[in-house]
């Protein structure tokens, strides 16, 4: 059972790069699993940026720096902040499993690739789209103070940089919001639609 979404207030992990593609989030060689083992995917999140070929951590990568190396927990590092066009490329849902498996609950960026955005939502990771200005300021805030916190209020659909007080509304449709707040998924919904599906098939299916 997934945790219900309400208000998440946490420190962040910054990744100020644009066009972070899903091949970087989880390289193809980790896609051979046949089960949804989020810990496995989480351990290999950003594998080739985080680790050398001999599996030693790359010291310069943000996840391995002292300020950001603590694993996400209540109020700590639950939010990933990334440059625009996050999650481009491959449709692999393993990328969302890796982000969820690592412990992130929210990803903030100024722009997400479509398929990855859906994949995050289907795995109870909330993609929050903010303005370029909000994002640039947030990167500065975190650079100045790694302990800086952000508050994401799902029912109110607001995201707030608690250091500067800058706050923005973010978009999420009513249906998805209901699903997140109540920890329901789309298949639960679709399975209740059997009569509608059969009605459609009887009247409209060509193939």
């Amino acid at each position: 059972m997934k945790a219900k979404f309400d208000i998440i207030q946490s420190t962040c992990v910054p990744l100020p790069l644009e066009n972070v593609d899903t091949d970087q989030i989880i390289p193809a060689r980790f896609l051979k699993a046949t089960s949804r083992d989020e810990k496995f995917f989480g351990d290999n999140l950003f594998r080739d940026w985080r680790f050398n070929a001999d599996n030693t951590p790359k010291k310069e990568f943000v996840f391995n720096t002292p300020a950001f190396s603590a694993a996400p927990s209540e109020g700590v590092h639950q939010i990933l902040v990334a440059g625009k066009n996050f999650g481009s490329g491959s449709s692999r849902e393993h990328a969302a499993w890796a982000i969820a498996g690592y412990g992130f609950r929210v990803v903030i960026s100024s722009f997400f690739a479509d398929i990855h955005k859906n994949n995050e939502l289907n795995n109870f990771v909330l993609p929050v789209v903010v303005s370029e200005e909000f994002l640039a300021e947030l990167f500065q805030t975190i650079a100045a103070d790694p302990q800086a916190q952000v508050k994401v209020d799902v029912p109110a659909q607001t995201v707030t940089n608690l250091t500067t007080g800058r706050s923005e509304k973010f978009d999420i449709n009513g249906y998805k919001k209901y699903c997140l707040v109540n920890a329901l998924d789309d298949i639960d919904y679709l399975l209740q639609q059997k009569a509608e599906i059969e009605k459609y098939e009887a009247s409209s299916v060509r193939y």
Partner: peptide, 22 residues
């Protein structure tokens, strides 16, 4: 169009997908 694995499961289960119109 390409979809994620949860969406593959949706289609297997219901021959439908929930999708915002682009």
């Amino acid at each position: 169009f390409g979809i994620g694995t949860s969406e593959v499961e949706m289609v297997l289960a219901s021959q439908c997908i929930l999708q915002a119109k682009p």
